[in-house]
């Protein structure tokens, strides 16, 4: 194959995943958290596509497409939640949503 080997792609994917994870853990706005989640999912997708190329098996691409569809659904619901929250004048702050405490 031309260009870098699979391992390079995997390292990019893992760095992307870690960036996304950091974003989820560090940011307080739920919007940004959702965006970071997207980054994590994309990192996983990249890994899947890389392996598909490596193994010569297109199932990895199928999986990646499914992940994309699921991510889209999840974003719909997540954004719906955020909109509902803002409509109820709730603070858009992940740290302030502590009803499950105790």
């Amino acid at each position: 194959m031309m260009g870098p080997e699979v391992t390079w792609y995997l390292i990019v994917a893992s760095i992307l995943f870690t960036i996304g994870a950091l974003g989820v853990l560090v940011r307080r706005s739920p919007l940004i958290v959702l965006l970071s989640l997207e980054i994590m999912l994309n990192g996983a997708n990249l890994a899947l596509i890389a392996f598909a190329r490596h193994q010569g098996d297109a199932d990895g691409q199928i999986f990646a497409l499914t992940v994309m569809a699921v991510a889209a659904s999840e974003v719909v619901v997540g954004l719906g939640l955020i909109v509902a929250m803002s409509r109820r004048r709730l603070p858009l702050d992940v740290d302030r949503m502590t009803t499950l405490r105790g």
């Binding site: 994309n42 691409q61 991510a71 889209a72 955020i82």
Partner: peptide, 25 residues
């Protein structure tokens, strides 16, 4: 990585639809 369809879908669906929704919100 020879994933043409996935790349197209990524641009169309993700960037085209999901991100637009994000921007709306």
């Amino acid at each position: 990585l020879s994933a043409e369809f996935v790349a197209a879908a990524q641009v169309l669906v993700y960037a085209g639809a999901v991100m637009v929704m994000f921007l709306f919100v």
